[in-house]
Design a protein around this nucleic acid. Structure first.
Lengths: 242, 242
DNA sequence: CTGCATCCGCCTCGATACTG
DNA sequence: CAGTATCGAGGCGGATGCAG
Protein backbone atom coordinates (compact mmCIF):
# COMPACT_ATOMS: atom_id res chain seq x y z
CA UNK A 1 0.00 0.00 0.00
CA UNK A 2 2.91 2.32 -0.38
CA UNK A 3 2.86 3.74 3.10
CA UNK A 4 6.50 4.76 2.67
CA UNK A 5 6.84 8.52 2.85
CA UNK A 6 10.03 10.57 2.93
CA UNK A 7 8.62 12.50 5.87
CA UNK A 8 10.25 15.77 4.86
CA UNK A 9 8.76 19.24 4.74
CA UNK A 10 9.84 19.92 1.18
CA UNK A 11 7.72 20.36 -1.92
CA UNK A 12 9.94 18.01 -3.86
CA UNK A 13 9.86 15.26 -1.26
CA UNK A 14 6.09 15.52 -0.99
CA UNK A 15 5.69 15.46 -4.77
CA UNK A 16 7.78 12.28 -4.83
CA UNK A 17 5.58 10.82 -2.10
CA UNK A 18 2.74 11.14 -4.61
CA UNK A 19 4.32 10.35 -7.98
CA UNK A 20 7.84 9.16 -7.16
CA UNK A 21 7.19 5.46 -7.27
CA UNK A 22 7.84 3.24 -10.20
CA UNK A 23 5.40 3.64 -13.14
CA UNK A 24 3.42 6.48 -11.55
CA UNK A 25 4.61 9.25 -13.85
CA UNK A 26 4.27 7.00 -16.88
CA UNK A 27 0.62 6.43 -15.99
CA UNK A 28 0.23 10.21 -15.77
CA UNK A 29 1.90 10.52 -19.17
CA UNK A 30 -0.62 8.15 -20.70
CA UNK A 31 -3.56 10.05 -19.27
CA UNK A 32 -2.09 13.39 -20.31
CA UNK A 33 -3.24 12.74 -23.89
CA UNK A 34 -6.77 11.90 -22.83
CA UNK A 35 -8.77 9.39 -20.77
CA UNK A 36 -7.81 5.76 -21.11
CA UNK A 37 -9.33 2.44 -20.16
CA UNK A 38 -7.57 -0.06 -17.94
CA UNK A 39 -6.62 -2.37 -20.77
CA UNK A 40 -5.28 0.48 -22.88
CA UNK A 41 -3.01 1.50 -20.04
CA UNK A 42 -1.81 -2.08 -19.68
CA UNK A 43 -1.03 -2.26 -23.38
CA UNK A 44 0.84 1.05 -23.45
CA UNK A 45 2.89 0.30 -20.34
CA UNK A 46 4.64 -2.95 -21.24
CA UNK A 47 5.95 -4.74 -18.17
CA UNK A 48 3.88 -3.03 -15.54
CA UNK A 49 1.93 -6.05 -14.32
CA UNK A 50 -1.77 -5.82 -13.79
CA UNK A 51 -1.77 -5.74 -9.99
CA UNK A 52 0.67 -2.86 -9.88
CA UNK A 53 -1.32 -0.80 -12.37
CA UNK A 54 -4.44 -1.28 -10.25
CA UNK A 55 -2.52 -0.27 -7.15
CA UNK A 56 -1.09 2.86 -8.74
CA UNK A 57 -4.46 3.92 -10.11
CA UNK A 58 -6.10 3.45 -6.74
CA UNK A 59 -3.33 5.32 -4.94
CA UNK A 60 -3.40 8.30 -7.27
CA UNK A 61 -7.18 8.37 -7.34
CA UNK A 62 -7.23 8.57 -3.53
CA UNK A 63 -4.76 11.45 -3.67
CA UNK A 64 -6.86 13.36 -6.18
CA UNK A 65 -4.53 13.08 -9.17
CA UNK A 66 -7.00 11.23 -11.34
CA UNK A 67 -10.55 9.93 -11.31
CA UNK A 68 -12.50 7.04 -12.66
CA UNK A 69 -15.07 8.20 -15.17
CA UNK A 70 -17.98 6.69 -16.97
CA UNK A 71 -17.43 7.15 -20.67
CA UNK A 72 -20.24 8.50 -22.90
CA UNK A 73 -22.90 5.92 -23.90
CA UNK A 74 -21.24 3.98 -26.77
CA UNK A 75 -18.54 2.76 -24.38
CA UNK A 76 -19.39 0.01 -21.95
CA UNK A 77 -16.64 0.41 -19.40
CA UNK A 78 -15.09 3.15 -17.30
CA UNK A 79 -11.99 5.13 -18.08
CA UNK A 80 -9.44 7.00 -16.04
CA UNK A 81 -8.91 10.71 -16.46
CA UNK A 82 -6.65 13.30 -14.90
CA UNK A 83 -7.98 15.88 -12.47
CA UNK A 84 -6.77 19.47 -12.60
CA UNK A 85 -4.16 18.52 -10.02
CA UNK A 86 -2.88 15.70 -12.19
CA UNK A 87 -2.95 17.80 -15.33
CA UNK A 88 -0.88 20.42 -13.52
CA UNK A 89 2.04 18.01 -13.83
CA UNK A 90 2.34 18.74 -17.54
CA UNK A 91 5.16 21.31 -17.22
CA UNK A 92 7.09 18.84 -15.08
CA UNK A 93 6.64 16.07 -17.63
CA UNK A 94 7.74 18.40 -20.41
CA UNK A 95 10.80 19.38 -18.41
CA UNK A 96 11.68 15.76 -17.81
CA UNK A 97 11.22 14.93 -21.48
CA UNK A 98 13.52 17.80 -22.46
CA UNK A 99 16.11 16.64 -19.99
CA UNK A 100 15.76 13.00 -20.94
CA UNK A 101 16.33 13.71 -24.62
CA UNK A 102 19.80 14.98 -23.82
CA UNK A 103 21.04 11.46 -23.28
CA UNK A 104 18.39 9.14 -24.70
CA UNK A 105 20.02 6.17 -26.40
CA UNK A 106 19.16 5.18 -29.95
CA UNK A 107 16.19 2.83 -30.10
CA UNK A 108 17.03 -0.88 -30.08
CA UNK A 109 14.93 -3.56 -31.76
CA UNK A 110 13.21 -4.33 -28.46
CA UNK A 111 12.62 -0.69 -27.49
CA UNK A 112 8.92 0.01 -26.98
CA UNK A 113 7.37 3.01 -28.70
CA UNK A 114 3.87 4.37 -29.14
CA UNK A 115 3.30 7.31 -31.48
CA UNK A 116 1.25 9.12 -28.85
CA UNK A 117 4.34 9.54 -26.71
CA UNK A 118 5.49 12.05 -29.30
CA UNK A 119 2.71 14.44 -28.34
CA UNK A 120 4.63 15.25 -25.16
CA UNK A 121 7.83 15.31 -27.18
CA UNK A 122 6.38 17.93 -29.54
CA UNK A 123 5.67 20.19 -26.58
CA UNK A 124 9.17 19.53 -25.31
CA UNK A 125 10.96 20.54 -28.49
CA UNK A 126 8.51 23.26 -29.57
CA UNK A 127 10.22 26.54 -30.46
CA UNK A 128 7.69 29.04 -29.14
CA UNK A 129 10.05 31.87 -30.06
CA UNK A 130 9.68 30.99 -33.75
CA UNK A 131 5.93 30.64 -33.64
CA UNK A 132 4.77 34.15 -32.76
CA UNK A 133 3.28 34.80 -36.20
CA UNK A 134 2.23 31.27 -37.04
CA UNK A 135 -1.37 30.06 -37.02
CA UNK A 136 -1.45 26.46 -38.18
CA UNK A 137 -3.05 23.13 -37.53
CA UNK A 138 -1.39 19.79 -38.28
CA UNK A 139 -2.72 16.25 -38.25
CA UNK A 140 -0.64 13.10 -37.75
CA UNK A 141 -1.75 9.55 -38.50
CA UNK A 142 0.61 6.83 -37.37
CA UNK A 143 -0.58 3.24 -37.42
CA UNK A 144 -3.97 3.46 -35.74
CA UNK A 145 -3.13 6.52 -33.64
CA UNK A 146 -4.28 9.96 -34.75
CA UNK A 147 -3.28 13.20 -33.06
CA UNK A 148 -3.01 16.85 -33.93
CA UNK A 149 -1.19 20.05 -33.09
CA UNK A 150 -2.50 23.59 -33.21
CA UNK A 151 -0.12 26.57 -33.23
CA UNK A 152 -1.48 30.03 -32.56
CA UNK A 153 0.33 33.16 -31.43
CA UNK A 154 3.30 31.24 -30.12
CA UNK A 155 1.21 28.77 -28.19
CA UNK A 156 1.05 25.06 -28.98
CA UNK A 157 -1.94 22.93 -28.07
CA UNK A 158 -2.14 19.25 -28.85
CA UNK A 159 -4.71 16.51 -28.61
CA UNK A 160 -5.62 13.05 -29.70
CA UNK A 161 -7.93 12.56 -32.64
CA UNK A 162 -8.07 14.39 -35.98
CA UNK A 163 -7.61 18.13 -36.46
CA UNK A 164 -10.60 20.29 -37.38
CA UNK A 165 -9.08 22.05 -40.38
CA UNK A 166 -5.48 20.87 -40.82
CA UNK A 167 -2.96 22.61 -43.07
CA UNK A 168 -1.58 19.17 -43.79
CA UNK A 169 -2.06 15.56 -42.84
CA UNK A 170 1.01 13.41 -42.25
CA UNK A 171 0.65 9.67 -42.54
CA UNK A 172 3.13 6.91 -41.82
CA UNK A 173 3.68 3.63 -40.00
CA UNK A 174 5.03 3.28 -36.48
CA UNK A 175 8.41 1.92 -37.50
CA UNK A 176 9.14 4.77 -39.87
CA UNK A 177 7.82 7.29 -37.38
CA UNK A 178 10.17 6.03 -34.67
CA UNK A 179 13.11 6.07 -37.08
CA UNK A 180 12.40 9.69 -37.96
CA UNK A 181 11.70 11.09 -34.49
CA UNK A 182 14.77 9.32 -33.12
CA UNK A 183 16.95 10.84 -35.81
CA UNK A 184 17.86 7.50 -37.34
CA UNK A 185 16.29 8.44 -40.66
CA UNK A 186 16.04 11.93 -42.17
CA UNK A 187 12.48 12.98 -42.82
CA UNK A 188 13.22 13.61 -46.51
CA UNK A 189 14.35 10.05 -46.96
CA UNK A 190 11.19 8.68 -45.39
CA UNK A 191 9.20 10.89 -47.75
CA UNK A 192 11.26 9.91 -50.78
CA UNK A 193 10.87 6.22 -50.00
CA UNK A 194 7.14 6.74 -49.75
CA UNK A 195 7.13 5.39 -46.23
CA UNK A 196 5.79 8.76 -45.08
CA UNK A 197 3.24 10.88 -46.93
CA UNK A 198 2.23 14.49 -46.44
CA UNK A 199 -1.02 15.77 -47.95
CA UNK A 200 -1.69 19.51 -47.88
CA UNK A 201 0.22 22.76 -47.67
CA UNK A 202 3.94 22.28 -48.29
CA UNK A 203 4.82 25.59 -46.64
CA UNK A 204 2.95 24.66 -43.50
CA UNK A 205 4.84 21.38 -43.44
CA UNK A 206 8.13 23.27 -43.73
CA UNK A 207 7.06 25.49 -40.84
CA UNK A 208 6.19 22.46 -38.73
CA UNK A 209 9.60 20.88 -39.16
CA UNK A 210 11.19 24.10 -37.94
CA UNK A 211 8.84 24.44 -34.98
CA UNK A 212 9.35 20.83 -33.88
CA UNK A 213 13.06 20.38 -34.11
CA UNK A 214 13.26 16.66 -34.79
CA UNK A 215 16.78 17.02 -36.16
CA UNK A 216 19.17 14.41 -34.82
CA UNK A 217 18.72 14.57 -31.08
CA UNK A 218 21.91 12.68 -30.49
CA UNK A 219 24.18 15.15 -32.25
CA UNK A 220 22.47 18.28 -31.04
CA UNK A 221 24.61 20.76 -29.14
CA UNK A 222 23.36 22.06 -25.86
CA UNK A 223 23.26 25.69 -27.00
CA UNK A 224 20.30 25.25 -29.28
CA UNK A 225 18.53 22.74 -27.10
CA UNK A 226 15.29 24.22 -25.82
CA UNK A 227 14.77 24.09 -22.10
CA UNK A 228 11.98 25.24 -19.87
CA UNK A 229 12.31 28.97 -19.59
CA UNK A 230 11.49 30.39 -16.21
CA UNK A 231 12.15 33.98 -17.22
CA UNK A 232 10.41 34.28 -20.55
CA UNK A 233 13.47 35.62 -22.30
CA UNK A 234 13.86 34.62 -25.97
CA UNK A 235 16.53 32.04 -26.70
CA UNK A 236 19.86 33.40 -27.92
CA UNK A 237 20.03 33.61 -31.67
CA UNK A 238 16.31 33.12 -32.09
CA UNK A 239 14.73 34.57 -35.19
CA UNK A 240 11.18 34.90 -36.41
CA UNK A 241 9.72 32.36 -38.75
CA UNK A 242 7.94 33.59 -41.91
CA UNK B 1 22.37 -2.84 -9.35
CA UNK B 2 19.37 -1.17 -10.81
CA UNK B 3 19.49 -2.78 -14.19
CA UNK B 4 15.75 -2.24 -14.48
CA UNK B 5 14.96 0.02 -17.42
CA UNK B 6 11.56 0.87 -18.81
CA UNK B 7 12.86 0.14 -22.28
CA UNK B 8 10.78 2.81 -23.95
CA UNK B 9 11.80 5.36 -26.55
CA UNK B 10 10.44 8.33 -24.63
CA UNK B 11 12.29 11.19 -23.03
CA UNK B 12 10.28 10.84 -19.86
CA UNK B 13 10.88 7.10 -19.53
CA UNK B 14 14.58 7.55 -20.13
CA UNK B 15 14.77 10.38 -17.60
CA UNK B 16 13.12 8.08 -15.07
CA UNK B 17 15.63 5.37 -15.91
CA UNK B 18 18.26 7.81 -14.65
CA UNK B 19 16.59 9.61 -11.75
CA UNK B 20 13.32 7.75 -11.19
CA UNK B 21 14.46 5.51 -8.39
CA UNK B 22 13.92 6.14 -4.74
CA UNK B 23 16.09 8.92 -3.24
CA UNK B 24 17.78 9.86 -6.53
CA UNK B 25 16.11 13.23 -6.99
CA UNK B 26 16.57 14.06 -3.33
CA UNK B 27 20.30 13.50 -3.71
CA UNK B 28 20.21 15.86 -6.69
CA UNK B 29 18.31 18.37 -4.57
CA UNK B 30 21.03 18.30 -1.93
CA UNK B 31 23.78 18.86 -4.47
CA UNK B 32 21.82 21.63 -6.17
CA UNK B 33 22.84 24.01 -3.38
CA UNK B 34 26.51 23.13 -3.67
CA UNK B 35 28.93 20.22 -3.30
CA UNK B 36 28.42 17.95 -0.30
CA UNK B 37 30.42 15.26 1.43
CA UNK B 38 29.11 11.75 1.91
CA UNK B 39 28.35 12.18 5.58
CA UNK B 40 26.53 15.47 4.96
CA UNK B 41 24.31 13.76 2.44
CA UNK B 42 23.60 10.99 4.94
CA UNK B 43 22.62 13.51 7.58
CA UNK B 44 20.35 15.49 5.28
CA UNK B 45 18.60 12.42 3.88
CA UNK B 46 17.23 10.74 6.99
CA UNK B 47 16.33 7.11 6.38
CA UNK B 48 18.31 6.52 3.23
CA UNK B 49 20.67 3.86 4.55
CA UNK B 50 24.35 4.12 3.86
CA UNK B 51 24.60 1.38 1.26
CA UNK B 52 21.83 2.83 -0.84
CA UNK B 53 23.36 6.30 -0.86
CA UNK B 54 26.65 4.85 -2.07
CA UNK B 55 24.80 2.94 -4.77
CA UNK B 56 22.87 5.98 -5.98
CA UNK B 57 25.99 8.13 -6.04
CA UNK B 58 27.88 5.53 -8.04
CA UNK B 59 24.98 5.05 -10.45
CA UNK B 60 24.54 8.74 -11.12
CA UNK B 61 28.28 9.33 -11.37
CA UNK B 62 28.52 6.62 -14.04
CA UNK B 63 25.70 8.29 -15.94
CA UNK B 64 27.39 11.68 -15.82
CA UNK B 65 24.94 13.45 -13.50
CA UNK B 66 27.51 14.16 -10.82
CA UNK B 67 31.18 13.76 -10.09
CA UNK B 68 33.42 13.13 -7.17
CA UNK B 69 35.66 16.07 -6.48
CA UNK B 70 38.65 16.76 -4.33
CA UNK B 71 37.88 19.74 -2.15
CA UNK B 72 40.41 22.59 -1.77
CA UNK B 73 43.27 21.90 0.71
CA UNK B 74 41.69 22.58 4.11
CA UNK B 75 39.25 19.71 3.55
CA UNK B 76 40.57 16.19 3.92
CA UNK B 77 37.92 14.26 2.03
CA UNK B 78 36.19 14.33 -1.33
CA UNK B 79 32.85 15.85 -2.09
CA UNK B 80 30.19 15.20 -4.69
CA UNK B 81 29.16 17.89 -7.13
CA UNK B 82 26.68 18.12 -9.98
CA UNK B 83 27.80 18.17 -13.59
CA UNK B 84 26.12 20.45 -16.11
CA UNK B 85 23.82 17.59 -16.97
CA UNK B 86 22.80 17.18 -13.35
CA UNK B 87 22.41 20.90 -12.84
CA UNK B 88 20.12 20.99 -15.86
CA UNK B 89 17.53 19.28 -13.70
CA UNK B 90 16.91 22.49 -11.77
CA UNK B 91 13.81 23.56 -13.72
CA UNK B 92 12.35 20.11 -13.20
CA UNK B 93 13.00 20.26 -9.46
CA UNK B 94 11.45 23.71 -9.29
CA UNK B 95 8.41 22.47 -11.17
CA UNK B 96 8.04 19.52 -8.82
CA UNK B 97 8.39 21.79 -5.79
CA UNK B 98 5.69 24.09 -7.15
CA UNK B 99 3.41 21.17 -7.77
CA UNK B 100 4.18 19.54 -4.44
CA UNK B 101 3.31 22.67 -2.49
CA UNK B 102 -0.24 22.45 -3.77
CA UNK B 103 -0.98 19.58 -1.44
CA UNK B 104 1.84 19.48 1.08
CA UNK B 105 0.51 18.60 4.54
CA UNK B 106 1.28 20.71 7.57
CA UNK B 107 4.53 19.66 9.24
CA UNK B 108 4.18 17.11 12.03
CA UNK B 109 6.51 16.89 15.02
CA UNK B 110 8.51 14.16 13.32
CA UNK B 111 8.67 15.88 9.92
CA UNK B 112 12.27 16.44 8.84
CA UNK B 113 13.32 19.88 7.66
CA UNK B 114 16.58 21.55 6.74
CA UNK B 115 16.65 25.28 6.06
CA UNK B 116 18.60 24.77 2.86
CA UNK B 117 15.59 23.05 1.30
CA UNK B 118 13.99 26.47 1.21
CA UNK B 119 16.48 27.67 -1.37
CA UNK B 120 14.67 25.59 -3.97
CA UNK B 121 11.36 26.72 -2.49
CA UNK B 122 12.33 30.37 -2.97
CA UNK B 123 12.90 29.74 -6.64
CA UNK B 124 9.59 27.89 -6.79
CA UNK B 125 7.49 30.71 -5.33
CA UNK B 126 9.51 33.60 -6.80
CA UNK B 127 7.33 36.19 -8.52
CA UNK B 128 9.58 37.18 -11.41
CA UNK B 129 6.83 39.40 -12.78
CA UNK B 130 7.09 41.63 -9.71
CA UNK B 131 10.85 41.81 -9.73
CA UNK B 132 11.58 43.60 -13.01
CA UNK B 133 12.77 46.78 -11.30
CA UNK B 134 14.22 45.24 -8.16
CA UNK B 135 17.94 44.93 -7.49
CA UNK B 136 18.42 43.44 -4.04
CA UNK B 137 20.49 40.97 -2.08
CA UNK B 138 19.25 39.13 1.00
CA UNK B 139 21.02 36.96 3.55
CA UNK B 140 19.42 34.26 5.68
CA UNK B 141 20.92 32.63 8.76
CA UNK B 142 18.99 29.70 10.17
CA UNK B 143 20.66 27.55 12.82
CA UNK B 144 24.07 26.89 11.32
CA UNK B 145 22.97 27.20 7.71
CA UNK B 146 23.59 30.43 5.83
CA UNK B 147 22.30 31.16 2.34
CA UNK B 148 21.48 34.16 0.21
CA UNK B 149 19.31 35.41 -2.62
CA UNK B 150 20.14 37.97 -5.27
CA UNK B 151 17.40 39.63 -7.33
CA UNK B 152 18.33 41.58 -10.43
CA UNK B 153 16.20 42.53 -13.42
CA UNK B 154 13.57 39.92 -12.66
CA UNK B 155 16.11 37.13 -12.25
CA UNK B 156 16.70 35.32 -8.97
CA UNK B 157 19.98 33.65 -8.17
CA UNK B 158 20.63 31.84 -4.92
CA UNK B 159 23.53 30.21 -3.18
CA UNK B 160 24.82 28.87 0.09
CA UNK B 161 27.01 31.05 2.26
CA UNK B 162 26.70 34.75 3.09
CA UNK B 163 25.72 37.51 0.67
CA UNK B 164 28.33 39.99 -0.50
CA UNK B 165 26.43 43.19 0.26
CA UNK B 166 23.00 42.27 1.65
CA UNK B 167 20.14 44.75 1.99
CA UNK B 168 19.17 42.87 5.12
CA UNK B 169 20.18 39.85 7.15
CA UNK B 170 17.45 37.62 8.54
CA UNK B 171 18.30 35.41 11.50
CA UNK B 172 16.23 32.77 13.23
CA UNK B 173 16.22 29.18 14.48
CA UNK B 174 15.15 26.14 12.48
CA UNK B 175 11.92 25.58 14.38
CA UNK B 176 10.68 29.12 13.87
CA UNK B 177 11.81 29.09 10.27
CA UNK B 178 9.81 25.95 9.55
CA UNK B 179 6.76 27.40 11.28
CA UNK B 180 6.94 30.50 9.12
CA UNK B 181 7.65 28.92 5.74
CA UNK B 182 4.92 26.34 6.33
CA UNK B 183 2.40 29.05 7.11
CA UNK B 184 1.84 27.90 10.67
CA UNK B 185 3.08 31.19 12.07
CA UNK B 186 2.76 34.64 10.47
CA UNK B 187 6.13 36.25 9.91
CA UNK B 188 5.10 39.33 11.94
CA UNK B 189 4.43 37.19 14.95
CA UNK B 190 7.82 35.53 14.74
CA UNK B 191 9.37 39.00 14.56
CA UNK B 192 7.25 40.35 17.42
CA UNK B 193 8.18 37.42 19.62
CA UNK B 194 11.81 38.04 18.84
CA UNK B 195 12.21 34.54 17.50
CA UNK B 196 13.17 36.06 14.15
CA UNK B 197 15.30 39.16 13.66
CA UNK B 198 15.86 41.27 10.58
CA UNK B 199 18.80 43.66 10.45
CA UNK B 200 19.00 46.14 7.58
CA UNK B 201 16.71 47.88 5.13
CA UNK B 202 13.05 47.55 6.13
CA UNK B 203 11.83 48.36 2.63
CA UNK B 204 13.99 45.66 1.12
CA UNK B 205 12.56 43.20 3.61
CA UNK B 206 9.03 44.22 2.60
CA UNK B 207 9.96 43.67 -1.04
CA UNK B 208 11.36 40.24 -0.24
CA UNK B 209 8.17 39.08 1.43
CA UNK B 210 6.26 40.08 -1.69
CA UNK B 211 8.70 38.39 -4.05
CA UNK B 212 8.72 35.14 -2.07
CA UNK B 213 5.10 34.54 -1.35
CA UNK B 214 5.35 32.59 1.90
CA UNK B 215 1.74 33.38 2.75
CA UNK B 216 -0.21 30.37 3.92
CA UNK B 217 0.46 27.74 1.31
CA UNK B 218 -2.42 25.64 2.46
CA UNK B 219 -5.10 28.25 1.92
CA UNK B 220 -3.72 29.64 -1.29
CA UNK B 221 -6.06 29.59 -4.28
CA UNK B 222 -4.78 28.15 -7.51
CA UNK B 223 -5.19 31.38 -9.49
CA UNK B 224 -2.34 33.16 -7.81
CA UNK B 225 -0.15 30.11 -7.49
CA UNK B 226 2.95 30.55 -9.60
CA UNK B 227 3.73 27.75 -12.01
CA UNK B 228 6.48 27.22 -14.48
CA UNK B 229 5.71 29.41 -17.43
CA UNK B 230 6.55 27.92 -20.80
CA UNK B 231 5.41 30.93 -22.76
CA UNK B 232 6.93 33.82 -20.87
CA UNK B 233 3.62 35.62 -20.58
CA UNK B 234 3.10 37.63 -17.37
CA UNK B 235 0.72 36.13 -14.85
CA UNK B 236 -2.81 37.50 -14.88
CA UNK B 237 -3.29 40.37 -12.46
CA UNK B 238 0.43 40.88 -12.05
CA UNK B 239 1.58 44.35 -11.16
CA UNK B 240 4.94 45.96 -10.78
CA UNK B 241 6.60 46.22 -7.42
CA UNK B 242 8.00 49.61 -6.34
C1' DC C 1 36.42 9.45 12.09
C1' DT C 2 34.87 9.09 7.21
C1' DG C 3 33.44 6.31 3.32
C1' DC C 4 31.78 2.80 2.06
C1' DA C 5 30.77 -2.94 1.81
C1' DT C 6 28.40 -6.81 3.81
C1' DC C 7 24.64 -9.07 5.80
C1' DC C 8 19.79 -9.74 6.89
C1' DG C 9 14.59 -9.22 7.37
C1' DC C 10 10.96 -7.10 4.98
C1' DC C 11 8.53 -5.02 1.46
C1' DT C 12 7.86 -4.10 -3.45
C1' DC C 13 7.90 -5.58 -8.04
C1' DG C 14 6.71 -8.42 -12.02
C1' DA C 15 4.74 -12.53 -13.96
C1' DT C 16 1.12 -15.79 -13.98
C1' DA C 17 -3.21 -17.67 -12.55
C1' DC C 18 -7.68 -16.89 -11.19
C1' DT C 19 -12.48 -14.51 -10.32
C1' DG C 20 -16.67 -11.37 -10.89
C1' DC D 1 -12.80 -6.83 -19.49
C1' DA D 2 -11.19 -5.30 -15.12
C1' DG D 3 -9.29 -6.27 -11.91
C1' DT D 4 -7.69 -9.66 -7.35
C1' DA D 5 -4.68 -13.52 -5.46
C1' DT D 6 -0.43 -15.70 -5.27
C1' DC D 7 4.50 -16.29 -5.28
C1' DG D 8 9.52 -16.03 -6.41
C1' DA D 9 13.13 -12.57 -7.11
C1' DG D 10 15.06 -8.60 -6.08
C1' DG D 11 15.25 -3.74 -4.06
C1' DC D 12 15.07 -1.28 0.25
C1' DG D 13 16.21 0.06 5.20
C1' DG D 14 18.81 -0.74 9.33
C1' DA D 15 22.73 -2.57 11.71
C1' DT D 16 27.27 -3.82 11.67
C1' DG D 17 32.05 -4.47 9.96
C1' DC D 18 36.22 -2.65 8.21
C1' DA D 19 39.75 -0.21 5.59
C1' DG D 20 42.08 4.22 4.88
Amino acid sequence: MSKRSYGQYCGLAHALDLIGERWSLLVIRELMTGPKRYKDLLKRLPGIGTNLLAQRLKFMEERGLLERRRLPPPASTDAYDLTDLGRALEPVLIGLVQWGYRTIPRPQPETAHFPGWSVLAMKAVFRADLAEDVEDEYEYRVDDEVFHARVKKGVLTTGQGPALDPNFVLETDGKTFLAVVSGEMPMDEALRQGRMRVAGDEDAFARSTALFDLSPLHERDDETFPTIDLTGRPAPGAHRLR
